[in-house]
Design a protein around this nucleic acid. Structure first.
Lengths: 338, 338
DNA sequence: CTGAAAGCGCTAACAT
DNA sequence: ATGTTAGCGCTTTCAG
């Protein structure tokens, strides 16, 4: 049988309470005691029983996902995965819920973050970077809350990101686009909802660097911003078709491809255009099947959600994580591996 | 606070013991009692606390991975992931270990399976299909052991598989190979360690069907078997180069690509040959970076290992699984998304 | 067929 | 600074 705290206490010649204090480094323990316990841990090979600890602690965590209120299909998928994960984590005493935030209004987002964050143990936030939100997040972190950024740039601030490396995702898009496009010089259209989003900037960076290095015959044109407005998107695409005679491919950077791809359909013959888009949604899946989109660069929303929850928990209990499990893979989706 | 068994017992007007009997349908309970408990569960919204149950039960599980003794690099990766997972699951009372089996010797494999299986609660087995092994596995299943097949065909027998759908993987290889290869007629070399392995057969099936339908100008040649012998592989590749004037691509089906790719390197100019291989190992990763391999069709070994463990546990506790979490994705790896 | 009661390994008051 | 002890929610004898 695996040694228990009782065994440990006996082996270290101290009481259960002292063992517990050392194990959870609560302080107020003599140096000798600490040393004795640590020595005994090594000697008898003690590993704590998490179930028992959680039970005794009786602590239940409240984690909250804050998602943009007008998020579109991809955010819809996230909601589904959160529901699913919420059920499986409930058994482990973790309550997971969601809240919609007005992502475009940095002020109100920051206010909501502060308010909701105060009541939760952990927050996973999906919102464009902004000073207000960043400050609110950092303040919460100071208060011992654990907060994670979803799908946003890594290393920009002190807030840990969860999601694919957007620069690498852009590079991946460039590589698949380059390989799928018949060789010979050509121009590549690049679309974004709006270039102010940190993730679009990073994708663009990775895309350009890779394309320039590997496919110098392909020229990436300046980013076109649709603001997710169908009419505007059509106008933009049509203008592009008129102004550029040798467009051979298009890269749709935003996670909501529908508006842009629909616009491309009216302005171009998609059979002669390599189209790379992001994220798997009902729309992009159908478009991939129909041959309108050639490949999808995606991240698994279920994995992102579960990873975020595991990471928030690990932080709450200040335990480590299994890094390889939490790395979010950049997936390339074709029709055959949907 | 979440309702507990005590609350449930009170709500149903029965004792804790009866509640437990119903919850774990142990039988020997009156119909009325069962009904009362179920009604109360719905009424007060009871969900069991797994931690507490596991603690009280005091049960620890023993799971064992049986892997081929001469497995090569890919199996090496598996060992690494198993070590890693073993640590994280130990905290939850799950002991995970490995054992090497003589995969080519069906008899001894079956014998080892029977012997090791008797001592474990669950077995994850990676071995070629054979009647002997199948029978040993089914016998263990009858004895209430839980056994999973790693990387082997789905639906072939009563033993649940863990790993990618090999037919779809073959199709994915075909699609990426087709798109990466300049159009115009050409021949495609297909390599296997040996075609007797179920997974190679399925990959070939998926590959051929997809290639024929989408890339009719590409002709897949009969499978070439290397038996993983370097000299033999070189001979085969050289013969292929001599006998076929228009080879434009190669599909390496086996999880150990090194021998075949090295042989291809001597017989062909890899710059003019699209090479698709399987699985991420140090070798394939380097080859991908060097441009010798054009794309990798892979499955995440860490995910496979964790999924197998979760599934064995779920079976032991006869709980359900979150299907979307256990589906092993067919990954397409390029240099940019390594 | 049903119930009472003693733990599982750990935590957290409350003592000392 | 250290120890004692009463549970956490559930399972499991052992009686009835």
């Amino acid at each position: 049988m695996r040694p228990t705290t009782k065994d440990l206490a006996k082996a270290a010649g101290v009481s259960l309470a002292s063992v517990d204090r050392v194990l959870n480094d609560r302080g107020g323990v003599g140096k000798k005691t600490v040393a004795a316990v640590h020595e005994a841990i090594e000697r008898i090979g003690f590993t704590r029983n998490v179930s028992a600890a959680n039970l005794a602690r009786g602590k239940t965590y409240e984690f909250r996902f804050l998602l943009p209120e007008d998020g579109g299909e991809f955010v819809g998928k996230l909601y589904d995965r959160i529901d699913e994960a919420s059920q499986m984590f409930e058994e482990e005493g973790i309550k997971v819920s969601t809240a919609a935030i007005p992502a475009l209004d940095a002020h109100r987002t920051a206010a909501m973050l502060a308010e909701i964050g105060a009541k939760a143990d952990g927050i996973a936030l999906m919102s464009p970077d902004s000073p207000q939100v960043r400050d609110a997040a950092l303040r919460l972190q100071k208060d011992g809350k654990h907060i994670l950024k979803l799908f946003s740039g890594k290393g920009v601030d002190e807030i840990a990101p969860v999601g694919i490396d957007n620069k690498a995702a852009g590079a991946t898009a460039a590589q698949i686009l380059g390989r799928f496009t018949p060789s010979g010089p050509g121009e590549v259209l690049v679309f974004a909802d709006t270039m102010s989003a940190q993730d679009s900037i990073e994708r663009r960076l990775g895309f350009d660097a890779f394309l320039a290095e590997r496919f110098p015959n392909l020229t990436a044109l300046p980013s076109l911003e649709t603001y997710r407005q169908p009419a505007r998107a059509v106008t933009i695409a049509s203008n592009a078709a008129r102004n550029h005679s040798n467009v051979v491919a298009a890269y749709v950077m935003s996670p909501e491809a529908a508006v842009t791809v629909n616009a491309l359909k009216v302005a171009f013959d998609l059979n002669n255009l390599t189209v790379i888009a992001h994220e798997r949604t009902d729309y992009t899946e159908a478009a991939l099947r129909a041959g309108e989109i050639d490949a999808l660069i995606a991240q698994n929303p279920g994995h992102v959600v579960r990873s975020a929850i595991r990471q928030m928990r690990a932080r709450c209990e200040n335990r480590g994580i299994v890094a390889s499990q939490e790395a979010i893979r950049i997936e390339i989706l074709l029709e055959a591996n949907l």
